[in-house]
Computed example of a mutant assay.
Amino acid sequence: MRIARYGEPGQERPFAAGSDGVWRDLSPLVDDVTGATLATVLDADLSVLPAAQPEGRVGPPLARIGKVICVGLNYRDHAAETGADIPDEPILFMKAPDTVVGPDDSVRIPQGSMKTDWEVELAVVIGSQARYLSSPAEAAACIAGYAISHDVSERAFQLERGGQWDKGKNCETFNPFGPVLVSADEVTDPQALGLRLRVNGAVMQDGTTADMVFGVDHLVWYISQFMVLRPGDVINTGTPAGVALGRADAPYLRAGDVVEIEIDGLGAQRQEMVSA
């Protein structure tokens, strides 16, 4: 199943398409797609719902996200390009849910920013509670599906202004998400997906989830030891090499730049950078 939401911010309508590729209006079934309604949507017989062609702005495919947990330095090539050691355990940090915007919404360059950076990431959407899982093997049953996240970062705020990473990760619009949530059963192997990102048409990132230090199931298991993962929570699983922080040949983002992102089987994003 593929789940999407269309409409202006705060007024999105939910849609879903099954194996026949026909988009259906979910409004007769649920008010919106949230952590509380995900199971209902994923178990639904879409054939009894009205066919409808979504139009207009593409919103995030999930509303009222619980929390966004992010994993740092989780690709071997990204750790190498930044001069960091491969971590012994996953590095975790948080993004506020209100950083999430639609996949094609504008990204606002913060006031005073000199180092706004890009990061294509595979997002894991939690579908059932994960609490003290006993092994990574239990994690798959807790995953509702996958989507694209753009973990935008302001590196000077993150690394040069003291404290933790939060200041460089939680600026408004810093997590474009979508365009679709693809159910877990449609992703044969989350560790075999290509990820690509272009800035103004030039390829900056071209990686694969096979290069993750800690795979998806390991991350869900590991995080469940420190916090309860609930339906509607999102995990941003890290980014491959090619970010501005690790390149000498690419400037950081400025107003007017265009970022395009795609992950195999999960669709594509396009954002224009604008001044805050």
Rank of each mutant, 00 (worst) to 15 (best):
A4K: 00
R5D: 07
G7P: 11
G10I: 05
A16T: 02
G18A: 08
G18P: 01
G18C: 00
G21D: 10
V22S: 09
R24D: 08
L26G: 00
L29Q: 04
V33F: 02
G35V: 06
A36R: 14
T37R: 05
T37L: 11
L49G: 00
A52I: 03
G56P: 08
C70D: 04
V71S: 00
V71I: 13
V71D: 02
G72S: 06
G72K: 04
Y75C: 11
R76D: 07
G83Q: 07
D85W: 10
P87T: 04
P90M: 01
P90Q: 04
L92P: 02
V100G: 08
S113E: 09
M114H: 03
E119A: 06
S135E: 08
S135P: 06
P136K: 03
A140H: 09
A140P: 03
C142L: 00
D151M: 07
V152P: 07
A156C: 10
F157T: 05
K167L: 15
N170D: 13
N170Y: 09
P176W: 09
F177Q: 07
V182Y: 03
A184V: 08
A184N: 06
V187Y: 02
D189R: 00
R198Y: 13
D206M: 11
D206A: 12
T209F: 00
A210G: 15
H218G: 03
S224M: 10
F226A: 13
F226I: 13
M227T: 14
G232R: 05
V234Q: 00
N236R: 11
G238V: 02
R247V: 11
A248M: 13
A248E: 15
A248T: 13
D249L: 03
A250E: 13
P251W: 06
V258D: 05
V258S: 09
G267I: 00
Q269T: 05
Q271Y: 06
